[in-house]
Nucleic acid binder design. Sequence first.
DNA 1: GTGCCTGCAAATGTTTTGCAAACCT
DNA 2: AGGTTTGCAAAACATTTGCAGGCAC
Lengths: 135, 135
Amino acid sequence: MVERRQTIQRGLVLDAVKVLYNHPTAQEVYDFIHETHPSVGKATVYRNLNLLVDEGQLRRVFAIDGPDHYDCTTHTHQHIECRICKKIVDVKLPIDLESIVNVEKETGFSNIDENIIITGICPECLKNANKNKIS
Amino acid sequence: MVERRQTIQRGLVLDAVKVLYNHPTAQEVYDFIHETHPSVGKATVYRNLNLLVDEGQLRRVFAIDGPDHYDCTTHTHQHIECRICKKIVDVKLPIDLESIVNVEKETGFSNIDENIIITGICPECLKNANKNKIS
DNA sequence: GTGCCTGCAAATGTTTTGCAAACCT
DNA sequence: AGGTTTGCAAAACATTTGCAGGCAC
């Protein structure tokens, strides 16, 4: 077991993800921290994000396109990402445990992660796309 | 509408993905082509992969970790990726159309892409992990 | 002949890593 | 004191782009 130390930087990173509730990227976390603590390096942000994910205090959201996002919610849920503006929104997919068991039987895979991301077009981007079509 | 030309390179890329049936990455496609056609550049491979995806002749598989993969299968299906060896395998998830409609209603998102990727540990990697534990 | 396509190299964007100094306990 | 953690810069990795020449049509 690795000994973990309490540092200012680690607390800043965790707080930033909590304040920036809407699935921030590492860059967004860095920018937020940089406003009040300009001396904190970007590598430290990345290292602490990885560390907090390992500890289970944060969840990594693998975006379909672009950088990873981070989520401070503890309960299992899924995400939908807009293919145009890359925004990520929470969604509850009706995936039941039974189907996971079936997948395990079918593929031989185990430890299946139920954190799923799907993609679509968000209402705002759809509106813009239609606007452009008319003009 | 953009005019598309038939080039040797484009054919090579499409064939490579078909021959390397198991969801090759851009690098693997490049390596395969490079064996018989060393003059083909990597940028050309990337450009043609993008082009073929746009045309609908190939499907891009966004891996959870690591580079994108490419799939020549035309029918809709899902993938499961091993979190250790990064291997990607086909899987049929019981996602019904009804749940997609519900997601559209709930989130306001449209054009939802049903190509989903989930992660787990493949049988081979699980075996290796257990072996290491005993020794 | 037009202009899309190619190959090369350089740039881009995201994340990791090497290292010496600083810090936590 | 000892090992973690930090900040910086450089490296690593995947992918895109600028450009001059080449090729499809």
